[in-house]
Write a protein that binds this DNA or RNA. Structure first.
Lengths: 218, 218
DNA sequence: ATGTGTGAATCGGTTCACAGCC
DNA sequence: GGCTGTGAACCGATTCACACAT
């Protein structure tokens, strides 16, 4: 069942498997069973096997999966073989934190530019980068071959920023603003909404009856 | 079909409907159709109607939903009738940004305490709060009736922090560390993993064939 | 004996389509 | 006529269970 279209839910779990495999690789463990990997990733073994079967036939019956090979396979399916430069738009509290977050560069997503609309912020240095005007977005994206735009502005400006990111040629968007974005069909967008997460937790605190464990995917 | 168990996917959308309703309320719009609400929330009308039907029968055929009443109903189902105090653990870049994020307080989740393990950070003032030792967690949670713990530490310390939050009596956890947490059955946990989100975007950039739009729920 | 790979069964969620009420 | 509420059909994802490879 190799080379079929990979289900969305599976795609969302690949980064988790990847993290587990990196850990195993660091401990020089050569092979891993679906059960062990499932434990590390917080899912069940059947799911691991089904998920991995979409990538191809990389396991050995009676043995398990070769850590290095599987890691390579996942990274290549995720398109992590080369870096994807990122621009952060909106250099408030959150934007600054994202600019300083070293995990991005480590995982192949270097933050190469910071952008804001506020003239007071333009010219400031944050995380070793000078904050530039949002009007320079086209140039910046072209210059640095930016492929991902992160929106960390207030909700009110999010749609405008998204439009400008799209126009500038960014290939996907991660949105931290609490607002729904309209983008061209087929452009990947993911949303992270902190207040929404807390409200979901609030619901399950109040309704322990409703089978406690939220968060199905991702 | 009222008062049945509310599906997880529906719960995750309630905060989005809520945001749209707040917007409508601010414009003094008295009623809204499922279609309009669907547009604002970025979903389709059938989904809105089905979702709202789990809350009860609050719409009027031929008219729509009364904005104020529906808003009240959603907020009460989400348990937002009183504040849920939050403690942030790990006062690095992200922790500081979260401490400063005004959206939390606005939406009923005041950040009442900051905690870190690093003696250099303890005693610092961030967002008007003094950073306290993680060893004081029990006292802090009891003092402020903290119900939600936010983990913004490195992955290596996340499980220990989670254990201590649970022991201190926190009722749910929002985890920003890239690691899988073990918590007692029935305790609500949500995870926000920034690097994972970027990897998912990376996949869909590389595979435009695989039907472009990720992010099914939330 | 062990552990993968995968059809088949199951489950949860979405969409359809229309009856019922305003 | 317009719009909700909801069974029924549909679709994607999860889980089961076992044949098969080592």
């Amino acid at each position: 069942m190799s080379s079929r279209r990979i289900p969305e839910a599976t795609v969302a779990r690949l980064p988790v498997y990847r993290r587990s495999l990196i850990e195993l690789a660091q401990e020089h463990i050569p092979t891993v069973s679906s059960e062990r990997l499932a434990d590390m990733a917080g899912v069940n073994a059947a799911k691991v096997r089904k998920d991995l079967s979409y990538l191809g036939t990389y396991g050995t019956r009676g043995v398990g999966y070769e850590v290095q090979q599987l890691l390579y396979e996942i990274e290549s399916k995720l398109g992590l073989t080369c870096d994807s430069p990122v621009v952060v738009v909106g250099i408030g509290n959150l934007g600054q934190a994202l600019a300083n977050y070293t995990g991005f560069r480590q995982r192949g997503f270097p933050v190469v530019a910071l952008v804001d609309a506020d003239p007071d912020k333009i010219g400031d240095t944050v995380a070793g980068l000078v904050v530039r005007s949002i009007d320079d977005l086209d140039t910046i994206v072209a210059e640095h071959a930016v492929s991902i735009g992160i929106i960390a502005t207030p909700a009110a400006s999010a749609q405008t920023v998204a439009d400008r990111l799209v126009a500038a040629g960014v290939r996907s968007i991660l949105n931290f603003a609490p607002s729904v974005l309209n983008v061209p069909a087929g452009m990947p967008v993911r949303k992270v909404d902190l207040a929404t997460e807390l409200q979901i937790l609030s619901f399950y605190q109040e309704h322990p009856a409703d089978s406690g464990r939220p968060q199905p995917a991702a």
